[in-house]
Design a binder for these strands. Structure first.
Length: 692
DNA sequence: AGCTTTCAACTTTTT
DNA sequence: GTTGAAAGCT
């Protein structure tokens, strides 16, 4: 995206410094540019700004967005100032608040962060069931309650059905477990800081003095607790900049609420609302389709996107017989554009193409067709690196180092790899620990443990405990990437982890792949221990040296490693949800049928609120495309072995593709084509472009 | 009855 | 590619 100068709306958003500001950033309207430039502006001396970098906080939803933001700011204000900014996710901000001031809530600074699998197994245990699906439904409900700001007591009193009452009771047990483990879940990373700031005004004041201006990205995705947290963070006179787009709110199902946008003008009467309506991404044909669809939703704030990138190619609707045919047609289209037969511009590389769909399982036929056509592709989403069993094994060990009271981590580490400590021993140990109200790790060294366990089990446990203590000591003393790597490799050797992988996997190739993941993980941890020479724009700096234990503290929040370069030039297959914030020159929207998009489980009417969110999803999909968009519709859908009639999505008609197309003046068209030819010619001649 | 095999279905997902 | 349910086998 190239924005030669800032447009008036963007400028207004950047220059507005003296009251809260809501930037309604339409798709592709240059919102990251606004945020980064506003940060730079806040650092300038004079009129209300003149802040130090450490007084500015920029909050995002994903680590990836935070990293991107930091990069973009760095390019603007330099690495030194950028490194002092607080650019982080809501959750890592929460971790920071809790590690610094969580003791006011009775939380030890070394608390553990549980991932979603840990939570599932705790709930299975607390609810006495082996049914993972049931446990996950509890987890889901509990998370929604927490996101609304309810604790178990509140949940118990407002439970409407028997199911909810049961879930609320299990939630109470769950809360008790977390407290005992000195562990928090992801929702607590918002909820507990909120409690911290509201119950301890001096802590709130400390942070309000620290952060003079907070910027929030993707504001429409905030949930009720995040809203309250933000409110407390900025304080009564707080000044902030919220950037978001009500039309791109697609996370209602996980607690995000547009109420947060509605409430903003009420809670902050001096709120300045600035819409960004110029789109720098898509052609007019694509934007018109997007606007036609989204205008059918009730509007919170009026906004119509426009662009001056020209009419462009018409949006295409491809009718397909079934899923396989759809995939073939999509691949055919990709090939045609790639060969330069259909669309002009940006077609040489496969990374210019994306196929988007509603649900993950729709990727399959496309994967097959792309493989058959020898086109490189990558499926976004799927299992993340840190969800792999081998990585979670190692993380459990690291978590246990950080927090000896983390019983779930203890159980995983003590049994992986197997070291002759079995169910029986652990059950006895657990009973003992429960009786004395201590953690499993503490119980291990108790004098009286010998009276309930045999000598062999006792020796095994003690050896494990001693190893953990020794390992913890080393992890504290080891700084810098080289030392860290050496230490971590020694650890893997000590516990025989490579052997463990081979023992537990029939397939040698799979075991080797797992081991290679482990090596990637070790390299990654070691690298974050720093002390390396980092060359950055000619500046040579030594990165900050950290101990292994410090690095381990940050792992729970991270979900993906940087992607490998080899994966880069590939067609992207992605869900619509995962595509938000991204763009591609050429996009295929797949399976745009009733029941799929909009999604519905059964036949029949879909409630209006749901349709609206599905419509926003369609809108997000359309606005990912820069130059060309093809919407494919199935005539028949596979259902079991038979095909059933499939109905095109209402959203296809809503695009109103046959209305309003501005027929290009033939003379205009000629002029445009000439310009394009000239542009191509000048790109070919190796002369440097004076305007570049 | 308890086990294995087969068959179909499959929301969206970050922290 | 995985999982849950239902049918089939011992």
């Amino acid at each position: 995206m190239s924005v030669p100068t800032m447009n008036p709306a963007q400028m207004a958003a950047v220059q507005h410094l003296d009251s809260p500001c809501l930037v309604l950033a339409g798709a592709g309207s240059g919102k990251t540019r606004v945020i980064t430039h506003k940060i730079a502006r806040l650092l300038l001396p004079g009129d209300g700004a003149d802040l130090a970098p450490s007084q500015i906080g920029a909050i995002t939803f994903t680590n990836k967005a935070a990293a991107e933001m930091r990069d973009r700011v760095k390019a603007l204000i330099g690495a030194k100032a950028a490194s002092k900014l607080l650019v982080c996710t809501f959750h890592s901000l929460g971790v920071r608040l809790l590690r610094e001031d969580g003791e006011a809530l009775g939380l030890k600074p070394k608390f553990s962060i549980l991932d979603s699998d840990d939570v599932t197994s705790i709930l299975r245990d607390a609810g006495a069931t082996t049914d993972a699906k049931l446990a996950r439904s509890w987890q889901w409900q509990i998370s929604l309650w927490k996101n609304m700001g309810l604790d178990s007591a509140a949940a118990i009193s407002q439970a409407a059905t028997d199911d909810e009452a049961l879930t609320a009771r299990i939630m109470k047990l769950y809360e008790e477990r977390l407290l005992a483990y000195q562990a928090v879940d992801f929702d607590d990373l918002i909820g507990l800081p909120l409690r911290l700031l509201s119950e301890h005004p001096h802590v709130a004041q400390k942070w309000q003095r620290q952060l003079k201006h907070v910027l929030v990205d993707e504001y429409q995705d905030t949930n009720a607790t995040q809203y309250e947290l933000l409110k407390l963070l900025v304080g009564p006179q707080g000044i902030f900049t919220a950037v978001g787009d009500d039309d791109q709110s697609i996370y209602g199902w996980r607690g995000a609420t547009l109420d947060n946008l509605k409430r903003l003008p009420q809670d902050y009467p001096n709120l300045k609302v600035i819409p960004l309506e110029q789109n720098y991404r898509s052609t007019s044909a694509i934007l018109r389709a997007a606007n036609n669809v989204i205008q059918l939703n009730p509007k919170l704030f009026p906004k119509t996107l426009w662009s001056d990138l020209g009419e462009g190619e018409p949006v295409k609707v491809a009718e397909c017989d079934n899923e396989e045919h759809e995939a073939e047609r999509a691949v055919g289209r990709l090939n045609a554009i790639h060969a330069g037969l259909v669309s002009s511009g940006q077609n040489a590389d496969w990374h210019n193409f994306a196929i988007l769909y509603r649900a993950n399982h729709q990727a399959r036929p496309f994967e097959q067709a792309l493989r058959k056509a020898n086109i490189p592709y990558k499926v976004s989403g799927g299992q993340s690196f840190f969800d792999r069993a081998e990585i979670k094994d190692l993380c459990a060990w690291l978590r246990l180092l950080l927090n000896n009271d983390d019983d779930p981590a203890f159980l995983r580490a003590v049994t992986t790899p197997k070291r002759g400590i079995g169910h029986q021993t652990l059950a006895t140990l657990g009973e003992f620990a429960g009786k004395w109200k201590v953690s499993l790790f503490e119980a291990l060294f108790a004098e009286s443990l010998g009276s309930v366990l045999n000598q062999r089990a006792l020796d095994g446990l003690h050896e494990f405990g001693r190893y953990i203590n020794d390992f913890e000591y080393k992890a504290r003393q080891t700084f810098g990437s080289e030392g860290a790597k050496e230490m971590l490799l020694a650890w893997l050797k000590d516990i025989g982890y490579e052997q463990h992988l081979h023992d537990n996997e029939e397939n040698e190739k799979v075991a080797a792949a797992r081991w290679s993941n482990v090596m990637d993980f070790i390299d990654w941890v070691a690298k974050r221990c720093g002390g390396d020479i980092d060359t950055d724009g000619g500046m040579t700096t030594e990165t900050e040296r950290r101990s292994v234990i410090e690095v381990a503290q940050t792992i729970a929040l991270i979900t993906s490693l940087a992607e490998r370069d080899s994966d880069q030039n590939a067609v992207v297959l992605s869900t619509l949800h995962a595509s938000k914030g991204l763009e591609w020159p050429h996009v295929v929207l797949a399976g745009v049928n009733e029941g799929v998009l909009p999604f519905s489980r059964e036949e029949g009417e879909i409630p209006p609120g749901q349709i609206e969110e599905e419509r926003r999803l369609m809108y997000v999909g359309i606005t990912r495309a820069r130059l060309s968009l093809s919407v494919s519709v199935l005539k028949r859908r596979k259902k079991g072995r038979e095909y059933v009639q499939a109905v095109p999505s209402r959203f296809v008609a809503e695009m109103k593709l046959h209305e309003g197309a501005v027929r290009e003046d033939p003379r205009e068209k000629l002029r445009r084509l000439r310009e394009e030819m000239a542009a191509k010619a000048s790109a070919r001649s190796a002369l440097p472009d004076p305007t570049a």
